[in-house]
């Protein structure tokens, strides 16, 4: 297969440098926001709730917060990059180059994974510093972090491609991404919910990403790790297919 590895790498590096050049906004600010959640929710509720046996609420919360920042920042990276490139017109430079839709997809999503992991590691390090947190299965943690970041980078790419202006992108983020993230079990175990909401939570694909990620820390989860992995991988392939179709057809970028 004819693959423009150098071109794909150049675009990936450009995308990483783009968010790194505004690291205060793209890395440090999300870390601080997540730690505020930990400070407020963790300290206030810590002694009142035991979500999983043998764990404080803060210990339960940290992996959820890490995953939430990974998801939101991976989404933000691709969506804001694409929409800005469309607004400024500089997406034209990529479109004029011999970079294929697949290479464009891999570069943008790859950069979003890097940003998601960078922010996630920041939250995790600070969380581990202040709380007794062990990582029982580091490879599961890494696998779910990378897969989830790639999924949300892909969702961000779809949103950025389909949006014509920032307003539409903000609607996508505020009415779809944020609710699904907050209702994915970041702050609670779905077993604490009434039955009907437990069933509804099972329809939220973000729930499986958070639950699988949390399993890597505690060897405890709301659903089996196999189910979480299956649904997460299926979601990844599904959203990848949607993006590749959009890019090959040139929807909203090649009129």
């Amino acid at each position: 297969m004819n693959f423009n590895l150098v071109g794909c790498w150049a675009l990936f590096v450009k995308e990483v440098r783009r968010f790194y050049s505004v690291a205060i906004q793209t890395i440090f600010a999300p870390v601080v926001s997540s730690l505020l959640y930990l400070l407020i929710f963790g300290q206030v509720i810590d002694t009142k709730i035991e979500v999983f046996s043998g764990l404080t609420y803060s210990q339960f919360l940290i992996p959820g917060l890490v995953m939430m920042t990974v998801l939101q920042n991976a989404f933000s990276n691709t969506s804001s990059s694409i929409i800005q490139s469309k607004m400024h017109g500089n997406l034209t430079f990529v479109m004029l180059s011999p970079i294929s839709p697949l290479e464009l997809y891999l570069a943008f999503v790859g950069a979003s994974v890097i940003r998601g992991l960078a922010v996630g590691v920041g939250v995790l390090l600070v969380g581990m510093f202040g709380f007794d947190l062990t990582m029982n299965h580091p490879w599961w943690i890494l696998l779910f972090a990378v897969l989830s970041a790639a999924i949300m980078g892909s969702v961000g790419l779809t949103a950025g491609l389909l949006s014509d202006k920032f307003d539409q992108l903000a609607a996508f983020q505020n009415f779809i991404i944020v609710p699904l993230t907050f209702l994915s079990g970041v702050f609670y175990s779905i077993h604490a919910l009434p039955n009907i909401w437990q069933h509804i939570s099972h329809l939220n694909p973000f729930f499986y990403m958070v639950d699988g990620f949390r399993y890597g820390f505690f060897t405890q989860s709301d659903v089996s790790i196999a189910l979480s992995l299956t649904i997460t991988v299926a979601f990844f392939f599904g959203i990848t297919a949607i993006n590749l179709i959009l890019l090959f057809k040139g929807v909203k970028i090649r009129d």
């Binding site: 423009n4 150098v6 071109g7 790498w9 150049a10 675009l11 590096v13 450009k14 440098r17 783009r18 050049s21 505004v22 800005q84 490139s85 400024h88 017109g89 500089n90 034209t92 430079f93 990529v94 180059s97 011999p98 970079i99």
Partner: peptide, 18 residues
């Protein structure tokens, strides 16, 4: 067309990379 994140030289180097 503009790109607020990079200098002219960087843009030319990036474009070469593509």
């Amino acid at each position: 067309i503009s790109d607020p994140f990079f200098s002219i030289k960087e843009l030319l180097t990036i474009q070469s990379g593509y």
